[in-house]
Write a protein that binds this DNA or RNA. Structure first.
Length: 555
RNA sequence: GCGGGCGUAGCUCAAUGGCUAGAGCGUCAGCCUUCCAAGCUGAAUGUUGUGGGUUCGACUCCCAUCGCCCGCUCCA
């Protein structure tokens, strides 16, 4: 697997050989959507089936030496829209953005903060305007003096408490008000409401108020850019809807609004009680699901890496709260082992722990399995996220649905809401990794390139080729083909020269070719040609099926 | 959405504003071929993204529009 400019060649090969086509191509395409061709769907299904097999049908052995409990699920793509209110996606996936007209930087509006300082001697108008942020009745005393942009990229709302004192200090300094020493000591700054409003006190009590507010709420005053400092250069916040909306039923009004799921996980949480009540499972156990998910990405990029419709393989592991760190570590190791087991070059895989400030709203800790994609190299890009979701989701659904989500643990004789560890893989990203990993230029062979798929994932397992299309060879080949296709996906290719046919099989990554030649009629043997080495062995035609079974493995 | 780049055959690409828009590869047919012959012969495949304009004449210049690619942001 090679450098970034091979990505174009890979994309071209994917189309030329029927792996992946641009969606709606005859209408000029549609950005962020891809169609999986005959070979692509086979490759993707092979990966999908392997995950399902190793997760649901034959789950890993747990730390106690016994197999884990795991069940499967296939929930609906469209659910009651309250699902997404409860999960936080209706809020979280509607991120307003602002752009700097000067330096062209884009910020998430809730990560750009403005600081308003509200002190004595300000106009009534501003005072009243500010009071909405202060959650006070209009007509209160005080004055707004300052509007200051002061967000650093990567600052989250949660960090505002750390950020605010410094910003306030600067504000006070720049505008020469107040004694900014007063807010240096943390105890002198207290959070009034939410994350935005700070009360700065001195010995005499209330001195002045500051409001730190994300740009989403900062309508009115000048909007300087935190990056380049240009005055009033930010645009109004614009909404980017990351969830696809649709309408259920014939009448298209707001009441009928629903969403295409942006992750498969919520379908699992919605069915937690059902599974618990019907499947004789005990905590700890897991529910696994594979399916499509949809995100209206601002910018789909890098082939199928970031597409608007994609496929996930997700598992939610429910465990007692005090065991969550143990299971987090367990799945972290287990998932890495799984990816390595696919035959991926170990140097191209790594684990990366998320920093606190990049954690999603639902997670306590998160680690990514990352792959060195050609377009990210020498850096890595995400392939799977293993999140410690705590009891966030079940708790939220309990709140919103009023249905109890707690679990009675008979062994501990206690009730709790289970904590959740979530290994969430991209199936379509996984297929992309298999493609990237397999792509092997080789100037020495006629095809100049071959796809070095692990035999287990190769879309076609073997080619059945008569050396020449005469002397009864095609007949023998067809007989072998009919026998093999009962168990394996095999190609029968009779026409054209043998070299040309080998080359074609190389390019689609067929690991073995069985060739019927003159000797076959004499001693019932065929040659087996290995894709990776180009070497050939002679084996009995009756052993071909066993040969493939051994090479490709069982289920 | 903003900025930059690009749209010619299935793919990769040519073609000073001027003959019927070409080449290689792939595909298909025939031939050849007893293990790399992806060799030989031939065939099919284009509203040059779309619409307008300038011009005697536009793949080429201008405008608009659509789409794709790269960056910003987001994420499996």
């Amino acid at each position: 697997m090679a450098e970034a400019n091979t990505m174009d060649a890979l994309v071209a090969l994917c189309k030329r050989r029927g792996f992946i086509y641009p969606a709606s191509e005859i209408y000029g395409g549609i950005n962020g959507f891809w169609d999986y061709g005959p070979l692509g769907v086979q490759l993707k299904n092979n990966l999908r089936d392997h995950w399902w097999r190793s997760m649901v049908e034959c789950p890993p052995i747990g730390p106690d030496g016994h197999p884990l409990q795991m069940v499967g699920l296939d929930s609906s793509i469209i659910q009651n829209p309250n699902t997404w209110v409860a999960s936080g996606h209706v809020g979280g996936f509607n991120d307003p953005m602002v752009d700097c007209r000067e330096c062209k930087t884009r910020f998430r509006a809730d990560k750009v903060f403005y600081v308003y300082v509200f002190s004595e001697a300000c106009s009534r108008e501003i005072k009243d305007d500010m009071s909405i942020y202060l959650n006070r009745d209009p007509g209160c005393e005080g004055e707004v003096e300052i509007v200051l942009a002061a967000a650093a990229e990567g600052d989250s709302l949660e960090q505002a408490a750390d950020f605010a004192p410094e910003a306030i200090r600067q504000a006070a300094k720049n505008h020469n008000i107040g004694n900014f020493k007063k807010c240096e000591a943390p105890e002198e700054v207290s959070l009034l409401r939410g994350l935005g409003t700070f009360l700065l006190k001195d010995k005499n009590g209330l001195d002045f108020l500051t409001v730190v507010t994300p740009a989403t709420r900062a309508d009115g005053g000048p909007r300087p850019c935190p990056r380049c400092g240009a005055a009033d250069s930010l645009t109004e916040p614009r909404l980017f809807n990351l969830m696809f909306e649709t309408f259920v039923g014939a009448v298209k009004d707001e009441d009928a609004k629903a969403y295409l799921r942006p992750e498969t996980a919520q379908g699992i949480f919605l069915n937690f009680k059902n599974v618990l009540d019907t499947m004789r499972v005990k905590v700890p156990f897991g529910i696994a699901q594979i399916g499509k998910a949809f995100r209206n990405e601002v910018t789909p990029r890098n082939f199928v890496f970031r597409s608007r419709e994609f496929e996930q393989m997700e598992m939610e592991w429910f465990c007692p709260p005090d065991e969550a760190p143990k299971w987090y570590e367990f799945w972290k190791a287990e998932r890495m082992k799984w990816w390595r087991g696919l035959g991926i070059e170990p140097a191209n895989l790594r684990l990366r722990d998320h920093d606190k400030d990049e954690l999603a709203h639902y997670s306590d800790a998160c680690v990514d399995v990352e792959y060195k994609y050609p377009f990210t190299a020498p850096n890595f890009g995400e392939l799977e996220g293993i999140a410690h979701r705590g009891c966030f989701d079940l708790t939220r659904h309990q709140e919103h649905s009023k249905i109890k989500m707690d679990y009675f643990d008979p062994e501990r004789n206690e009730r709790y809401i289970p904590h959740v560890i979530e290994p969430a893989s991209g199936l379509t990203r996984g297929a992309l990794v298999l493609l990237c990993e397999a792509y092997t230029p080789d100037e020495s062979r006629p095809s100049k390139v071959f796809m070095k798929f692990h035999p287990k994932f190769a879309p076609v397992k073997a080619g059945v080729l008569p050396l020449v299309a005469k002397d009864g060879m095609p007949e023998i080949a067809e007989k072998l083909y009919l026998e093999l296709r009962e168990t394996f996906i095999v190609d029968l290719d009779i026409k054209q020269s043998i070299g040309k046919r080998y080359a074609r099989q190389d390019e689609i990554g067929t690991p073995y070719c069985f060739t019927i030649d003159g000797q076959t009629k004499e001693d019932d043997t065929v040659t087996v040609r290995y894709r990776d080495t180009l070497q050939q062995d002679r084996i009995a035609i009756s052993k071909v099926k066993d040969f493939l079974a051994e090479k490709i493995g069982g289920k």
